[in-house]
Design a protein around this nucleic acid. Structure first.
Length: 603
DNA sequence: TTAGGGTTAG
């Protein structure tokens, strides 16, 4: 039984109270309570357990404890809680705070916030603890607005709490999650007095995903200030490393973790496995996984997902078979994803059915999206569309884009049009639907339809995400855009690329000009293809080949899916230069070696 | 007695 946030009724006869009083258990005290199996039947054993694990003074000694409402998050518990709270004779700041944080723990963030409004209206006042809980609730609620965020911030300023590290850290998290406003996060962070390791971890967390380089910079600064990173700090910094185009930082951090004595920490090992696999080094993920003393569900899921991303479907299934814990919903997302990338249609089907029948896990939107992906990639587009129609809930953008992407792969336009329309309806500001549909038209020679879609996109002020590639040379990561001319060595790069294209053509590379999406001369079409960002990155690597042998292979990171022509190009190039080329695109890794790709051209 | 930071998931 999940105990956090339980409402407990105390009989305080022996401790100075005449009536039963209620106290909402917060995270610090409830942490000690998780040992209990079932609060409804454990009332006898509870006080003993309680007194040994919960620091109590004589006033708050528990003589009996009844669970009024358990953490079901159904809302029934909150009504009970509120009525009991109203009948309490002793209500002070701490009991109000306990209620507010208790509601937050139950996930009843609306109750938590309205209680605060009531408290404020009743003239009770508030302290740091109140504010921290309410900020937490505001952060977790899906209904929160920027206005509420600003209101809480101004309350913190007015009350003089804003520079308190606990309040400031909560505000940083609020600005980061609710409005992604990093400037405001920094402002709050800088004005914090006595910044400790938690404050620093908070600001690093705020920027870890969107600005991983910044996160690493902050990490070095906190160390410069003499603060000692703990496991929380390490975990978020490793997460930031997973967002970088190089494994160097992850490795360095791994070394530091070992030296600091966190080598056996499961959470950190999980984060490292993920970072290594995201940076293209599945072997290091495997090594971390194999050396782990204690695996948890996240470890298994992460390893399965790592194999999925690298197209090693059979390995993913092998890990699943070896699991010694019950799989969860995420396990199946990873597994189905592995089946999709490896073309394991039957196994995917079996797993999808087994989810509910054998493991009692109802498929969610993301599972359906994987299944649509599995069927779609295999060319079973009608089946994929039918599956979306059968979904118990409306298909989300992920489901429809999986179908659309499959249509593109198989050159199908009718189903594609329906999928694109749905996608645009659901996310009008997302360019994916427009771009993919326009590309499908182009590939079929329907340039006027493509032009129409592009115009629609422009009119709707939806901007395409530019395709970029990154490659690490020495200490620097170089960024390339298709046809880009910003690199200081651009002329040499294009010359190198022309030379390479010539050699590859001799080896059998044929440019796939049907992929160029405009009605232009054939010669220009070829040039457009040659100037895709990953080809520029490869040419640049070749120019610096002597200085870049450290990792033994060429590693290129991309933010969008690799095109068919670049895929062919990389295959022939890997044979031509006699090196393994690893390309990470938006979805997965491709390992090119001796003219073939690890995906067996199924992606 | 109440209160701030962390890992996997297209």
């Amino acid at each position: 039984m999940y105990m956090e946030g339980c409402i407990c009724l105390y009989d305080m006869h022996q401790s100075g109270f005449n009536q039963r009083e209620i106290l909402f258990l917060g995270p610090r005290s409830s942490l000690a309570m998780t040992k209990l199996a079932d609060p409804m039947t454990a009332s006898d054993s509870l006080p003993a357990c309680f007194s040994t694990t919960f620091p109590m003074n004589s006033r708050s000694r528990v003589s009996s404890l009844l669970v009024l409402a358990v953490a079901t998050s159904t809302g029934a518990g909150s009504d009970d809680a509120w009525s009991v709270f109203q009948s309490m004779t002793l209500r002070n700041l701490i009991t109000w705070n306990s209620m507010i944080s208790g509601f937050q723990l139950l996930g009843l963030t609306g109750c938590s916030m309205s209680l605060f409004v009531r408290m404020h209206g009743d003239g009770i006042g508030f302290d740091c603890a109140t504010l921290i809980s309410v900020i937490g609730s505001c952060c977790e609620s899906v209904h929160s607005s920027i206005g509420q965020c600003r209101l809480l911030h101004s309350l913190a300023i007015k009350a003089g709490f804003v520079s308190q590290p606990e309040v400031a850290t909560a505000l940083v998290k609020l600005y980061a999650t609710l409005v992604s406003d990093m400037d405001e996060c920094y402002r709050v962070f800088i004005e914090t007095t006595d910044r400790d390791i938690v404050s620093w971890t908070g600001i690093i967390t705020a920027c870890a995903e969107s600005q991983p380089e910044e996160a690493l910079l902050l990490f070095s600064r906190l160390r410069y200030h003499g603060l000692i990173p703990d496991r929380y700090t390490f975990s978020i910094v490793i997460k930031a490393c997973a967002g970088l185009a190089t494994e160097r930082h992850g490795s360095a951090l791994h070394g530091l973790i070992i030296r600091t004595g966190f080598e056996d920490d499961t959470v950190l090992a999980n984060a490292l496995m993920h970072a290594y696999s995201r940076c293209g080094n599945i072997e290091l993920s495997e090594r971390v996984f194999n050396q782990m003393r204690a695996c948890d569900i996240v470890s298994w899921n992460t390893m399965i997902k790592a194999y999925a991303m690298h197209g090693q479907g059979e390995e993913a299934l092998r890990v699943f078979a070896a699991m010694d814990v019950q799989p969860d919903s995420t396990t199946f997302v990873s597994l189905l994803c592995a089946c999709a990338h490896a073309g394991l249609v039957d196994q995917g089907h079996e797993l999808f059915n087994a989810m509910l029948e054998r493991y009692g896990i109802a498929p969610r939107c993301d599972h359906f999206a994987c299944m649509v992906d599995i069927l779609g990639r295999a060319g079973r587009l009608t089946e994929a569309e039918d599956l979306i129609k059968q979904m118990p809930v409306q298909g989300d953008p992920v489901v429809w884009s999986a179908l659309l992407s499959a249509c593109r792969k198989h050159g199908e336009t009718e189903i594609a049009e329906r999928a694109a329309q749905k996608l645009i309806e659901l996310e009008p500001k997302n360019s994916v639907g427009y771009v993919m549909m326009s590309n499908i038209y182009c590939e079929n020679g329907r340039y006027s339809d493509a032009g129409f879609i592009r115009k629609e996109m422009k009119d709707g002020r939806t901007r395409k995400v530019p395709g970029l590639s990154w490659i690490e040379i020495g200490d620097l990561v170089h960024e390339f855009a298709a046809g880009g001319r910003r690199h200081p060595e651009k002329d040499a790069i294009y010359a190198e690329l022309n030379g390479l294209v010539g050699r590859l053509k001799e080896m059998g590379y044929v440019p796939k000009t049907s992929l160029v999406l405009h009605e232009i001369e054939e010669q220009h079409k070829e040039e457009q293809l040659y100037h895709h960002s990953e080809k520029l990155a490869l040419a640049f690597w070749l120019m610096n080949a002597t200085a870049t042998t450290s990792f033994g292979c060429v590693k290129i990171m991309k933010n969008i899916r690799i095109c068919l022509d670049c895929h062919n190009f990389m295959k022939v190039a890997s044979a031509c230069i006699g090196k393994k080329i690893v390309v990470r695109d938006a979805n997965r890794f491709h390992h090119f070696r001796d003219g073939v790709c690890s995906c067996s051209d199924y992606w």
